[in-house]
């Protein structure tokens, strides 16, 4: 019953022989909205990429719903960083949303009516259906992020890994995205999000994973969002950051029962 949605053991990643992630052991239970936070260069994106196999890991293992990645890949949806693609690429909003259905189709089958329906519904959920026939370059940053999320929705996965979905989006989009993520959690999905803003992290996520080249802490937000642990994560190098953390932590204490 209690198989974690995602489990890593001693997950280690090196770039050009320089280690960027050391031995991460974590087991994330199903049905949670989890934020990964840590300073720049802490390996947050690398962590997600190595789970997906986009970046090769040099040690350890990953299990998704108790099985190796290959066997449960169809249950995982990956949302890369918005900057990782060329938005001048000659495809429409609809084309991108349709890509979400390609996993089920395999290499050769073509998307039909059913797939178009799924893609349209996903776009509609994010308010992007009116833009379906636009070339993706003619969109604002927030709209581009919504297209990426529509594509993820069309995948209909059980576990989602999202790389900075809140980066560079407008306030309206941020609100729409968090509402969607919460809805996904209500439907029993597990959503893991790389996030860069400490203050909203506390508000948005049930659980937090603090990362700084190694796992600093993982658990319920109320247990993890402490000054001590945040200080440990951010290393106290940046006083401004630790001040914000302190401020946010104080607010958190007021909210707690």
């Amino acid at each position: 019953m209690n198989i974690p949605a995602l489990e890593t053991h001693d997950l280690t990643v090196t770039y050009h022989k320089r280690p960027v992630l050391y031995g991460v052991d974590v087991a994330i239970p199903e049905g949670n909205l989890v934020g990964i936070i840590g300073p720049n260069g802490a390996g947050k994106s690398t962590f997600i990429k190595s789970i997906m196999g986009v970046v090769p890991s040099s040690g350890g293992w990953v299990k998704i719903f108790g099985k190796p990645l290959k066997e449960s890949l169809h249950r995982v949806g990956y949302v890369p960083q918005r900057e990782s693609v060329d938005w001048d690429f000659p495809v429409t909003v609809m084309d991108v949303a349709l890509m979400g259905t390609y996993g089920r189709l395999g290499l050769f089958r073509r998307p039909g009516k059913k797939e178009r329906m799924i893609a349209s519904e996903s776009l509609d959920k994010l308010g992007m259906l009116p833009y379906a026939n636009r070339q993706i370059g003619n969109l604002s940053g927030g709209q581009q992020q919504r297209v990426f999320l529509a594509r993820a929705l069309a995948q209909d996965s059980d576990l989602y890994l999202m790389d900075e979905p809140f980066a560079g989006v407008d306030a309206a989009t941020e609100a729409a995205i968090i509402k969607l993520l919460q809805e996904m959690r209500e439907n029993g999905k597990t959503v893991i999000v790389v996030h860069h803003d400490l203050q909203s992290a506390q508000e948005y996520f049930d659980m937090l994973l603090l990362l700084n080249m190694r796992l600093v802490a993982f658990g319920e937000t109320k247990d993890i969002f402490t000054q001590e642990l945040l200080h440990k994560t951010y290393g106290g190098r940046l006083t401004v950051l630790s001040e914000i953390a302190e401020k946010a932590a104080k607010q958190g204490k007021d909210v707690q029962p």
């Binding site: 990429k49 997906m52 196999g53 986009v54 890949l73 169809h74 995982v76 949806g77 990956y78 890369p80 990782s84 693609v85 060329d86 690429f89 495809v91 084309d95 991108v96 890509m99 390609y102 996993g103 189709l105 290499l107 050769f108 073509r110 998307p111 594509r151």
Partner: peptide
């Protein structure tokens, strides 16, 4: 035969890995 996979790999190879391509 491979137009769609080739398109996805060209546009977003990280996502293509996630699709199991």
């Amino acid at each position: 035969l491979l137009i769609r996979p080739l398109l996805v790999v060209s546009f977003d190879s990280g996502f293509a890995v996630g699709l199991g391509y």
